[in-house]
């Protein structure tokens, strides 16, 4: 199995030759669906070159690079990180809607920023190092 780290999750996927995988796995990892016009999410479709699509499989690394996202592999190519595209991050921030996130508290209880809608939030980072 190949491990894929996205900005918000980890997935174990049956992949070959890098990140060639079934369209169903590609959708599970990215939320984008393979259609005749390319990889699609809601109204948006990203056309793929013929070299990135096979019989019932798709090259996820090629798609992600096409989106403008970084694709980083471990030395053994068994763990991959798919980073958020810079343009996507910039567009989100410029929209000024605070990006939602879910993180555990110190006791492991998951907390989401969106739970606090209706309150002013002072969101601050710190570290022990």
């Amino acid at each position: 199995m190949t491990k894929i780290l996205t900005p918000t999750a980890e997935h174990d996927v049956a992949a070959r030759d890098g990140l060639w995988m079934s369209p169903a796995d590609a959708e599970r990892v990215t939320g984008w669906t393979l259609k005749p016009e390319g990889m699609c999410r809601a109204e948006a479709c990203v056309p793929l070159p013929a070299s990135a699509v096979g019989t019932n499989e798709v090259d996820l690394a090629a798609f992600w690079a096409r989106l403008g996202g970084p694709v980083i592999a471990s030395d053994e190519r068994d763990v991959w990180a798919l980073g958020a595209p810079a343009d996507e991050r910039n567009a989100t921030l410029e929209g000024l809607a605070a990006p939602d996130f879910t993180l555990p508290d110190v006791n492991g209880v998951p907390r989401s920023l969106s739970q606090l809608r209706g309150k002013k939030v002072f969101l601050a980072t710190w570290a022990s190092w």
């Binding site: 993180l103 907390r111 920023l113 606090l116 309150k119 002013k120 939030v121 002072f122 969101l123 601050a124 980072t125 710190w126 570290a127 022990s128 190092w129």
Partner: peptide, 9 residues
């Protein structure tokens, strides 16, 4: 509401 986030890998 304060939300304090420790950046602790």
């Amino acid at each position: 509401m304060v939300v304090a986030v420790a950046e602790e890998s």
